[in-house]
């Protein structure tokens, strides 16, 4: 098969409503869909041969007031042309009180990615088996990877407030 993306595009269009696809279908294909369709689409793509979830990423689109989730899938099985293809499955969820369903039932390795997003963007993944803190030591009012988190102000308020330990001879 020379261009697996073209065939996949047609299949996806016939199965799912209101999706848009971009890309040439050889190296990278971007699929945008409604958030209701994501879990179904992930399990469909896994059955089709895209059995490796490389990353779940998130983009904070402050102007549109949405968070964009990006699922990056690639293939270990299938033929060579298919192995070259990466699929970026994108969806948007509202920024206020963001909630989404977990993908751990389909891809087990989604678990640490979702914990990371929960911590850094404040997204609540429903049905996740263990949504405990992963990286951060301190607690933040706003999750620190959101665009409205002012790092400069945070550094001034927290780290710059701690005094130097001064000796009588000078700074130790």
């Amino acid at each position: 098969m020379k261009n697996p993306g073209k065939k996949l595009q047609d299949e996806l269009r016939s199965m799912f409503e209101s999706i848009s696809t971009e890309g040439d279908g050889e190296n990278r294909m971007t699929v945008k869909c409604r958030k209701e369709a994501v879990i179904t689409m992930l399990s469909f793509l896994k059955k089709t041969g895209f059995d490796h979830l490389a990353l779940i990423s998130c983009v904070d689109r402050l102007n549109d007031n949405v968070l964009e989730l990006v699922y990056i899938l690639s293939s270990y099985g299938g033929d060579v042309a298919m192995q070259k293809l990466n699929i970026l499955l994108k969806t948007t969820i509202p920024r206020e009180n963001p909630q989404f369903y977990t993908a751990t039932e389909i891809f087990g390795n989604a678990s640490p990615y979702e914990r990371e997003l929960h911590e850094l963007y404040g997204i609540l993944f429903r049905g996740h088996p263990r949504l405990t803190p992963l990286f951060l030591e301190r607690e933040y009012d706003i999750p620190p990877f959101r665009k409205d988190f002012d790092t400069r102000k945070y550094v001034k308020d927290v780290f710059d407030q701690i005094p130097f330990v001064d000796d009588k001879k000078g700074r130790t």
């Binding site: 951060l136 030591e137 301190r138 933040y140 620190p144 988190f149 790092t151 400069r152 945070y154 550094v155 780290f159 710059d160 701690i162 005094p163 130097f164 330990v165 700074r171 130790t172």
Partner: peptide, 16 residues
């Protein structure tokens, strides 16, 4: 990392 949210800036505030 001068404006990082998670990196301490001056180590000598915590240990000599």
């Amino acid at each position: 990392y001068w404006d990082s949210y998670n990196t301490i800036k001056h180590l000598d505030k915590y240990i000599p």
